[in-house]
Amino acid sequence: MNSPQAKIDIDSYEAGFLLGLYECMVQIREFEEGVKFLFLEGTMPGTIHQCQGQEACAVGVCTALEPTDWITSTFRGHGHALAKGLSVDEMLFELFGAATGCAGGKGGSMHMVNMDKGMIPSIAIVAGGVPVAAGMALAFKMQQTGQVAACFFGDGAIAEGAFHEGVNMAAIWDVPVVFICENNQYGASTHVSKVMRAATIAERLSSYGIDGRRIDGNDVIAVYEAARRAVDDCRAGRGPAFLELMTYRRTGHSRRDACHYQPKPEREQWLENDPIVRLGQALIEAGHATTEELDAVRKHILTSFDDAVERAKAQPQPTLADLTTHVLA
């Protein structure tokens, strides 16, 4: 793994591609920040689990996927959804509980979904997506569709039974699934070192016969390149694959968590290691963008977000008749 502030190597890529990555990361950051204030204002109901600082993981991985590939996500899923192509509108409407939201207003923050864009409803149960992704990938293999499943989870998932069962199933079936651990170092308030004696999560996966590497999860290019190799391997029938993306959770576990358990020096060090700032610096140094142009990207995203909030407030809520729709049992 690179040292935290290692320079991002963008030499192999065109400006348009890199600016696309930048824009998507800023979109995620500002979506999360905007939602945070809507929550504080009391405008938006429910609680939220946010991913500020982890944007490079979602964007690097989803950029390596085809639109026809599928992802499973978690309760911290806004970034995955935006990176997989869900719109700010359909997500924000869902957060407002509107009938026009991506889950018809019945899911909320923890159940982002768009089946046409390759995202099943994100799963709020820790490690819940692991066996689901293994099964999904088994279907892709048996039906020879050429698709790949990408399964996001956090370090809090790695001691769950479902994680071990799901990973082992995927391994013995040789299915096309990329397991992605966003190691943000805290499962709720518990540091990963308290739930794992091994030095890396990658070691755990190798015990199941799945190769995996620890990667700088705040370097979007490093994530993209590793994900690209993993996805290519899966598509070529050499799956499953694993990525351990080292990152950091900047917010509390949820909005109601004061986050006092993160030591201050550790927090400060990671706040300096900002995936968006790092890519922005690389873009400026390479002459692909000016500071003003990058500011303009952010301003445009902020304005669009404010417009989306106004639309969200005016959306229809589900009616009594919607109570019995989409109910399977």
Binding site: R256, A258, H260
Partner: peptide, 12 residues
Amino acid sequence: ETDKAVMEVESP
């Protein structure tokens, strides 16, 4: 102070 912890409230 909530039922669980001392917290800071941020201005929106």
